[in-house]
């Protein structure tokens, strides 16, 4: 039942990105911070709708698949290919193909099974990368993407900063409120003492 829901959501999200690509890509903020993540999310949902979600991978293999997603993200962070996706149909097609598969599906398959150090490292780097991109886009005097205005680029910079803050909050906040299963028995003992 949930599977059907995931499949339907994935299809809706993906076709939304395709059908409204003109509107989404007209503004760099919705292009980078809405369309691209939505395409990746469509891939996540697609994988969750299949039996692949139960596949148990050896950690070293999960690490490798996670790295595939990292490189795909790097690629779509290149301003050159964001520009190219707007004028070259092949690049646009590659975007719609690789973000759901190489980024979304890869992460849905391998992220939880990857080594905790790798996950921590990538999370920390994702936050700092978003922050650096934010400052770069806000302060760059030149157009980084030829397709967008400098003023739009600055808005995108603030968008990246907000994303950096949101992601760091989302990842650190739960650490202060651990679920009972994570704290274990020793934690509950100390609780009793303090109470």
């Amino acid at each position: 039942m949930t599977r059907t829901l995931f499949a339907v959501l994935s299809a809706v999200l993906f076709s939304g990105c395709v059908v409204f690509r003109g509107e989404l890509e007209a503004d760099p903020v919705t292009h980078m911070l809405l369309q691209l993540p939505a395409l990746a999310l469509a891939g996540v949902l697609l994988l969750l709708a299949t039996d692949l979600r139960f596949v148990k991978l050896p950690a070293y293999f999960a690490n490798a698949i996670t790295l595939v997603a990292v490189f795909a993200v790097f690629f779509w962070m290149l301003p050159r290919y964001i520009d190219a996706s707007l004028i070259n149909p092949f690049v646009e097609f590659a975007k719609f193909l690789t973000l759901p598969t190489l980024v979304g599906a890869s992460l849905a398959l391998a992220w939880r099974q990857a080594h905790p150090f790798l996950r921590g490292f990538l999370k920390a780097n994702a936050i700092s990368m978003l922050g650096v991109l934010g400052f770069l886009y806000i302060h760059a005097p030149l157009r980084i993407c030829n397709s967008y205005l400098v003023s739009d680029q600055q808005r995108l910079g603030y968008g990246f900063l907000i994303a950096a803050i949101a992601v760091s909050l989302a990842w650190t906040f739960p650490l202060f409120f651990p679920s009972p299963s994570e704290t274990g028995a020793s934690q509950s003992k100390t609780n009793k003492v303090t109470v």
Partner: peptide, 14 residues
């Protein structure tokens, strides 16, 4: 990435 950026020389369209 190396191939896509002409050897890390061109990250932007310009």
């Amino acid at each position: 990435l190396w191939a896509a950026t002409d050897g890390f020389r061109a990250l932007t369209e310009e």
